[in-house]
Design a protein around this nucleic acid. Structure first.
Lengths: 334, 334
DNA sequence: ATTAATTATCGAAACGTTTCGATAGATCGA
DNA sequence: TCGATCTATCGAAACGTTTCGATAATTAAT
């Protein structure tokens, strides 16, 4: 059969418990016996059976990763990449990721099985998840990390992208290029990250001693899609307020914005410069290629896992948030 | 502490083993005791600890899902959706999916940990994976299912899409529309699925008693991207051979094809009709919207899991392949 | 009515680890 | 030199199930 810890013990001429102590890097082991055990492990090509470790130690080495199926299967692989970063990081901490998708609205039958079967040590929740689920999960008392979403109430730990700083970088870049009349098109302002981006816009202007002109801020569109960007831009141009640059709250809106400008024969970046936010895959396909703020998705995933593992190792929960750094990518649209 | 099988046994007034028999739906249990046990389970809100089951039964209820990180994080969520379908199906068979990504070339250090730690009962390999890994995995004797890829040698079980049938449907559709001179642009013909699509093209013509005209078949392009489609189409038009329809071996090539035709002021579908293959997300954005062959990715993933679970349950391996059905989606380009 | 066959239930071992308390040996202090 | 303290190692219980062989109860066969 398979080689077990007993075989290792026999080969190294020590007890099973000693082998266990070596495997788990516990102190109080002579260097000499440690080496003997390690060598036996090597020679027998022994790997501890994860499942047995789990039963004995009451930690199963799994992390649950929950997101809505909508988020997971979107064309833009945003959460996929976050997951990828998480998986990679988890692997290096010797944890497994158990991914499960859920519906957008909470149903009792939708409760991830790994929770019921006590099969995870902690949970990562990515993107917006139904509050019903959040409440349910908190009942297990498991360490939990939110990613790219902050629950409406309660204590939590979240990994977010630095929206304010990103917006400041975007607008700062435009200011550096000499722009003074910079518009913001925002769409659905109820969304926390859009709010932050507007806040960053405001701060950047302030720091450069530029006035915040309400005529240049369009947040009337109901969503944050391509269409909203198109409409917001049309409205902005209609306004007649002079401007030389536009900061769109995300790339999708930037695309719509660009489309509108093209229709009105306004040249980008010559007449109006344009910056987006997110650096989606299509940003590089835009005509002209879009200057935008890049978020390293893999990093976000990795940070989430790292934080969770720390909670698991130290056995205490952390509250607050971590802001993942963002980066300005300058392309042709500015 | 947590409620265990013992608590259930006590509450139901039976032995632990009886509870286990009920849980695992073994025969030889009176309906009456079965009900008593079930009720106790319900009242105590008991769920077996997965990890304990695993240790005792020597099956851990996990399925390894391996794909290259490249495949996973592509913009087109092809494998993501396959995974999604797999995850869903696995959930319903009470299995967990352990996803791991690997590099494109095989390295010893890259061996998924769930293999070393004997943490999976079977493996799904999606997309092209390095042969070194395939050989390594076969050493474990685990039931294995390939998805959208057939290894170059050895026995295997694979879930593939029905390329031949899809091509036949595509070309058949064109023929039905009255087209007689139908071109095929294929790109990298060394790729098995492109070969099959060419074969389907050939069969469709044959069945309609149309001649196979080599002048109308372009397979000189080195890849199967947008660019290749563009170049192949230009070459085709240059040829001068009259034609009224083009079947592109995939959607990406169809996009390039469309771009070329647009440049040459050839109207789609009036002058030349165009069909693609894959139904990628962008197909609906093409101008005109692309008629194409749709593959249900979630189905493929589900079929893979279903087959694997069957192997696990019956404890014997299956060889051969399953072809997942494909479907013609008629849009504006024909 | 007795034995044989069948069925429902049970007890205990097994799965492969971790962990806790025990032990023997070494070191120390006075 | 003797007890006290410390250190390296060990033995055995524990984790929560499944499963196998045993047993008691029931049914069937003669």
């Amino acid at each position: 059969m398979n080689v077990t810890i007993k075989d290792v013990a026999k080969k190294a001429g020590v007890s099973v418990s000693t082998v266990s102590l070596v495997i788990n890097k516990k102190p109080a082991i002579t260097e000499e016996t440690r080496q003997r055990v390690l060598q036996a492990i090597e020679e027998l090509n022994y790997y501890p059976r994860r499942i047995a470790q789990g039963l004995a130690s009451k930690r199963n080495g799994n992390i649950g990763f929950i997101l809505t199926d909508y988020h997971f299967s979107r064309a833009e692989p945003f959460y996929t990449k976050i997951f990828l970063g998480s998986e990679f990081e988890a692997r290096h901490h010797n944890y497994y990721l158990l991914l499960t998708t859920i519906q957008n609205k909470f149903a009792q039958s939708d409760i991830p099985r790994f929770l019921l079967e006590k099969n995870v040590d902690g949970v990562i929740l990515a993107g917006k998840v139904p509050t019903g689920l959040i409440e349910h999960i908190s009942g297990y008392g498991l360490p939990t990390v939110f990613v790219d979403y902050t629950p409406p109430k309660g204590k939590y730990f979240a990994v977010l992208m630095d929206n304010i700083d990103g917006a400041k970088q975007a607008v700062g870049h435009l200011i550096e290029k000499g722009h003074r009349k910079i518009a913001f098109i925002g769409g659905d302002i109820s969304h926390p990250s859009i709010q932050s981006r507007l806040e960053g816009y405001r701060q950047a202007l302030m720091e450069a001693n530029l006035v915040f002109n309400e005529q240049l801020v369009i947040t009337s569109s109901p969503n944050t899609t391509d269409i909203d960007g198109y409409q917001s831009t049309c409205a902005l141009i209609q306004n007649g307020e002079p401007l030389t640059a536009i900061f769109a709250a995300n790339d999708a809106m930037a695309f719509g914005c660009n489309r509108c400008l093209k229709e009105k024969n306004i040249r980008v970046p010559d007449q109006i410069a344009l910056v987006g936010f997110d650096d989606v895959e299509l940003a590089i396909e835009m005509e002209p290629r879009l200057t935008t703020i890049k978020v390293n998705k893999e990093d976000i995933g990795a940070i989430a896992v790292k934080s969770l593992v720390e909670m698991l190792d130290t056995n205490r929960k952390i509250n607050g948030k971590i802001l993942a750094p963002v980066e300005l990518i300058v392309r042709e649209s500015t």
